[in-house]
Each structure stands twice: as C-alpha cells, then as structure tokens.
Simulated assay, not measured.
Amino acid sequence: MRPEQCVTGNHIEVCHGSVLPSAPDRISFWMVLRGSLLPILVWTGVGCFAYFVFNPVVAIVLGGLLTLLFIVGFGLRRRAKHSVRCSAYGALGGVLDKSITGF
C-alpha cells in the first residue's frame, strides 16, 4: 500500500461521517477521537457503572477486553502492510465503532 493512501478517510471508519474530510486526506488523532466520541462516552459510562455497582475488577476486565481488541486490530492492519500510524488510528476507530454496533 502506498503511504499517501494509508491514513485516509477511506481506511478509518468512525461513528460520525461529518467529522471526516470530504476527500481522502491525512487524519489527525484528534479527528479519530472526535469521531468516536459517542463510543468513548458509552464505554466510559459502562466502565464507571461496573466499577461502582459490581467491582473494580469488572471494570478492569472490560478495559482489558477493549485493549485486547485494539491490539488484535493493530496487528491485523500491520500484517496487511499498513503504516504504524494508520494501524493505530484504524484499530482505535474500528474498536470504538464496532463495539457499540449492538447498542
């Protein structure tokens, strides 16, 4: 994959399409976080609820699961010959986007 195509709006899916630029362009980390604001808020709320209602261990397990999914996504993207930056942004956006599909 050519470097100029790697970190583009075509490769990183986030929840809010209005956040992404209209044409393929380099995406900043802030743009990925801004596009993933809803999943971040949902998972923060779920983690806080689990921490206070059940046990801190439940919140740690939830965070570990999301971290594991990020690592797997990062590894799959690196194996597909994406750059480190594209892999990190894509894995973060992908985990957050796909994790709230059921909500």
Score class of each variant (00 low, 15 high):
residue 22 S to Q: 14
residue 94 G to S: 08
residue 39 P to K: 00
residue 62 L to N: 02
residue 73 G to W: 01
residue 48 C to A: 14
residue 103 F to V: 15
residue 96 L to M: 13
residue 98 K to T: 14
residue 54 F to E: 06
residue 8 T to P: 07
residue 95 V to Q: 00
residue 97 D to F: 15
residue 5 Q to H: 13
residue 94 G to D: 09
residue 61 V to R: 14
residue 2 R to I: 05
residue 103 F to I: 15
residue 37 L to Y: 07
residue 54 F to G: 02
residue 41 L to E: 00
residue 70 F to I: 02
residue 11 H to S: 10
residue 39 P to D: 06
residue 91 A to T: 08
residue 83 S to A: 03
residue 36 S to T: 11
residue 62 L to G: 09
residue 48 C to M: 14
residue 9 G to Q: 10
residue 85 R to T: 10
residue 22 S to V: 12
residue 74 F to I: 04
residue 79 R to L: 15
residue 59 A to S: 14
residue 82 H to K: 03
residue 2 R to P: 11
residue 17 G to A: 12
residue 51 Y to W: 14
residue 103 F to E: 08
residue 40 I to E: 06
residue 38 L to T: 15
residue 66 L to V: 00
residue 72 V to E: 09
residue 9 G to M: 03
residue 83 S to E: 11
residue 36 S to I: 05
residue 93 G to A: 11
residue 50 A to G: 07
residue 69 L to T: 02
residue 38 L to D: 09
residue 42 V to M: 06
residue 90 G to V: 00
residue 11 H to Q: 14
residue 100 I to V: 11
residue 32 V to D: 04
residue 36 S to Q: 13
residue 63 G to S: 05
residue 86 C to P: 04
residue 91 A to K: 07
residue 75 G to R: 11
residue 28 S to E: 01
residue 7 V to A: 08
residue 93 G to Q: 07
residue 84 V to S: 11
residue 24 P to S: 05
residue 41 L to V: 14
residue 23 A to K: 15
residue 51 Y to L: 10
residue 101 T to R: 15
residue 69 L to F: 12
residue 57 V to E: 13
residue 69 L to D: 01
residue 59 A to I: 05
residue 77 R to M: 12
residue 80 A to T: 01
residue 45 G to S: 12
residue 58 V to Q: 03
residue 86 C to D: 14
residue 34 R to T: 07
residue 18 S to R: 11
residue 7 V to L: 13
residue 13 E to W: 02
residue 94 G to V: 04
residue 36 S to H: 01
residue 94 G to C: 03
residue 69 L to W: 09
residue 72 V to C: 07
residue 57 V to I: 14
residue 19 V to P: 02
residue 2 R to Q: 10
residue 65 L to C: 08
residue 89 Y to S: 02
residue 39 P to Q: 02
